[in-house]
Design a protein around this nucleic acid. Structure first.
Lengths: 110, 110
DNA sequence: GAGGAATATTCCTCTTTAGTTATATTTGAA
DNA sequence: TTCAAATATAACTAAAGAGGAATATTCCTC
């Protein structure tokens, strides 16, 4: 999870992932579409690859990069344990805290 | 999304978020449980707060930090567009690419 | 096998950022 | 009103990492 998030945190890498969402692409294509220089694209792809977010297939001269499923499943599973926070019911905790604070303030008035 | 991921990418901040998953905590409690020094905890919480991942409530001396729902919903929505990648069907794309490569190799043999 | 295209790698610089220490601020309690 | 606890902030240092230019590598084509 740590490595996955770290890889995605860099803006250009996030853009690369967004690009690959629609299908595999070549290093050159990625660099072109994002206005990156080739080494920059290569390096970011390297990071994504080390993080397991992307896989690479050599075809002759070219290297085709493609998204892997696992990291996304990982994020999905991780999010699962925060499901209760996304529920309406959770927001009440804020109210609870604010009430608690308001109560304290009122205590002072006494 | 960019700021959310960036905030979560730092290991200690991820740990803080994990901690807060089970309920609101004080700066001191967070620092203790994670073995962080107080300023360190404060700063990470500041980053999380700027990123909207966390909210703060003052109670007397203390500041209580609590998770916000929105960023998690945001991640959830983002993940949604990668749903197709997590499906079995997607993995076939790898096969497709490997086939393509194998085909190329065979062409060479001719 | 020479040249060119696509990509990776190396080295360098610069910016960002995490950690640390010291200090300021706020608040409850004596 | 003074003291101590909880937290934030500032200043500094060090390390990580992104971008750029140059170079190495691989592979196709002629």
């Amino acid at each position: 999870m740590k490595t996955t998030l770290n890889a995605l945190a860099e803006p250009n890498r996030l853009l690369i992932v967004e690009l690959l969402r629609d299908g595999p692409l070549t290093v050159g294509e990625i660099a072109d579409r994002l206005g990156l220089k080739q080494p920059q694209a290569s390096k970011h792809l390297g990071v994504l690859r080390n993080a397991g977010l992307v896989e690479m297939t050599k075809i002759a001269n070219r290297r085709i990069y493609n998204l892997k499923a696992e990291p996304f499943k990982e994020i999905d599973a991780w999010l699962e344990s925060y499901r209760h926070i996304m529920n309406e019911r959770f927001e009440r905790l804020d109210d609870y805290l604010e009430d608690l604070q308001r109560k304290n303030v009122n205590d002072d008035d006494k």
